[in-house]
Structures are given as C-alpha cells and as structure tokens.
Write a protein that binds this DNA or RNA. Structure first.
Lengths: 213, 213
DNA sequence: CGGTCCTTTGAATTTCCTCAAACAAAGTGG
DNA sequence: CCACTTTGTTTGAGGAAATTCAAAGGACCG
C-alpha cells in the first residue's frame, strides 16, 4: 500500500515538475516535489545543486540492514546537493510540498569560491552534528536540535517541524520512542509547549542553551 | 603532577622543534613534537597546514564539562590543520614523537584545488564518522575503527595503535571500559589477537567487514 | 465512518555507563 | 637494580539510559 502511494506521488511530482517549468526572469525554472518524493538517490551520478524556494528536504543515507542516518534537513533559501564524491552518497527527499531551483555547476573548473563555501558549510555542519551525536545524551541532542531549528526558521520562538519523529530520531541517532519521551519531558518541565505534534513553542530557550553546555 | 610533566614536555618539544630546523631541499623544515604536545589549540587563529613526516596526531574539541570529541586521527603522509573557520575549532596534539612539515597556504585566493580536496576529504571523513557514531553499536564501531586503521597503515593485518583507549573511546563516542570490553570480546571470538595493548593483529578481517554491514 | 499512518505511553530488556578494584607497563629516585 | 609512583588497561558488579516490544490514542484521508 505504501509503495503504491509513493509511486503515485512520485509520478505526480514528476508531471507537476514539468508543469511548473515556466519562464521567469531568473536563470532556472522551479521544479516542484510532492511530500516524500525523491529529488535524487544514492548511487546516482552527482550533478546539479538545488536551491530551495519553499518547503523542506531531508538528506540521508541507508545501511544495508535498513538503519538510516539523516545527515541534514534543509529549508527555504538553503542550497543542497553538493557532494564530495562523483556519485551521490545520499538520498534527497522532499518532506513537504517543495519547490527547488536547479543551479548549474560552473562548467569545468571545480574550485570556485561558491563551491568552496558549500564544502565548508557542509564540513562545519557535519562536525557540529558529530559532536551532538557522539557525546551527548537524549535531552541534549533534542535541545541542540530545537536550538538549530530556532536559528534557522525563527517565527518568534515557535518552530514548525516538517519532519516526522522518525526523521528526527534518524537525524539524532535515537529511536522515535526516545524522541517522543524527550519531547514529553521538555513539555512537563515547562520548557516547550506542543500546540500540535508538528509545532513546538519554545518557552524557555535559556534552559535549552544551558543543556547544550 | 601531570600538568608539570606536560609543561616540561611542551617546553622540550619547543626546543626540539627549533633544534630540528635544518635546511633540506624541500620548501619547509620539519618541526618535531614530543608525545602529548600541542601543535595548535582551539581558539587560535587558523593558520598553516601541516603534513606529517612521521608519528601520529589527534584532532579533538572539548565541551565545557570536559567531555571530548576526537574528530580524527592522522598518520604519516596525511595533511591536517585545515579548518573551515578563521579561528581553530579543534586542538591538534602529537600522540607519539611526531615530525610535521608546515605547508604555507596559497597567499590570497582561497579556493585552490588543493584546499578544495582537503575540504572534501574532511567532509567525507566527517560524514562517514557520523554514520558510525550515530547508528552503530559498540562492536560495529570498533570494527569500523579497525578496518579504517587497516586501510591506512596496513602492515599485513597488523595495526599499531598510537592512541590510548581513552582516545579511541572519545573518537567513537564510548567509554574506555566499553572499548576494552569490546576488544576483549573480539579476542575471545578469535577475530583479533592482542600481542600487546597497542598492537592489534587482525585474524578475521571478513568478520569485521560483515559487522560493518 | 473506516483505515492508515504517526505519535504517545507502558513494561520488559538490552546496552552501555559508572564506580571500584586489581593488574600491567613504564618511568623515577634512592 | 629494585621499590615506588604514575599512568593506562582490564575486569566485575550494579545502575542508568535508551531500545525493543506492545498497545492505545490521535490526525488525516478517502
């Protein structure tokens, strides 16, 4: 059932993408992806970069036994699709309805300042992530996650989560149950409010910052 | 007591470094560092790159409560000291008697192919490390560690560990006790032999590879 | 309204950590 | 050269944190 749904969604997204190709003043048209649709896959040849116009994307890789490591979430305004290798090591999927603009790579030369900046941002992100996942406990990981989300989409102390608990767990190296229990604990301690499962209101950001060191 | 010892070692290394500055045909002289000596520190202004002539180096960062995340080990022939930021986010320390050659950064332009290559290698390393630390259990982490060491210093199935169990633990996100117990378990299962604490003989590499997926 | 998917909560279990002690190796000073 | 210290490693016992398994609740969709 799920695969069928996914296949349909993928097809729809494809037509949708084509339908949305219209001429604008900007260099590249916007492609649109429905929720859960793949933008590129592990094993494909690395190609274009993508800039998000609206929506949100997850970047992940799979282990052979099905375990998944989400390495990044990306939101409107951010660029993704930069990979160190010639073939893609990761999957990129839209988490919600998402529009992306393709950015052509500078044809021949590889070391443009833009690409370098992307590599550096990726490096910093990965090293930060490594610290969180490697040396912190559940509460600290979730706190770091909330603070990161706040930084990147601040709607006055309110964050919207386009991803599922499973995504968060696979991003932070823990199970959905632990994610859920940690959310509950923050709620019980009055640090957050959960108006709905996908919206988090940060009541005491200083407590989160304290937890992260 | 320990600080005193360290201070002496640091001073010795310093004089040693100066003593070893001799003219060779290569562009830069070799500086020498005694075991446990700092090569650069978190907070310093990012500067030169270093190429290891002999020895081994650990790269790490500290949390305010003393927890430590080792992000990389480097061996002879490898280059380290590349950082994404203008100030160093990490410490670099010699783990054994180590000789490094300073590499001057290309003066003005930032995006040389060499620097790009370093950034990419760092990115791949960090992403690989993230997967190990984020989604694997103790046995798998140690297995991945052994395989990585094998790849990088293959003396026919024998690896020499210049780092302590604490270093390994802080690299893999576990305690020294768990590291030690995992080593013991591999030994009991006939996968490795431990001629000494710092030498590991890999008897069944295929078992390690199986564990890593 | 019924079904699916996601989330939450509880109970049992596993894994890893903490604390403690013994052991081993290397260096120091008498 | 040998006691003695220091540092690093191993091993055991108990405990804490997170996972697994199970079930119930909630939101969304046709």
């Amino acid at each position: 059932m799920q695969t069928a749904t996914l296949a349909v969604a993928r097809n729809l997204a494809h037509t949708h993408a084509i339908a949305l190709v219209h001429s604008v003043s900007r260099p590249q048209p916007v492609s649109s992806f429905l929720p859960e649709c793949e933008i590129y896959a592990q094993g494909e040849r690395s190609g274009a970069l993508y800039q998000i116009e609206f929506g949100a994307v997850r970047i992940y890789r799979l282990l052979s036994d099905g375990r998944r490591q989400v390495v990044a979430f990306h939101f409107a305004g951010e660029t993704f699709g930069f990979e160190a290798d010639r073939t893609r090591s990761f999957f990129a999927e839209a988490m919600v309805h998402t529009g992306v603009r393709t950015i052509d790579r500078p044809a021949n030369g590889q070391a443009t300042p833009e690409l370098m900046a992307l590599a550096l941002r990726g490096l910093i992100r990965a090293q930060e992530h490594l610290l969180v996942v490697g040396r912190q406990r559940a509460m600290e990981r979730i706190a770091a996650f909330f603070l990161d989300m706040m930084d990147r989409q601040d709607d006055r102390g309110q964050i919207e989560l386009p991803m599922t608990r499973l995504d968060i767990g696979d991003y932070l190296g823990m199970t959905i149950e632990t994610v859920s229990r940690t959310f509950a604990r923050f709620r019980e301690e009055g640090i957050i409010r959960l108006p709905s499962t996908r919206i988090v209101e940060i009541l005491k950001p200083e407590r989160l910052r304290f937890l992260c060191q």
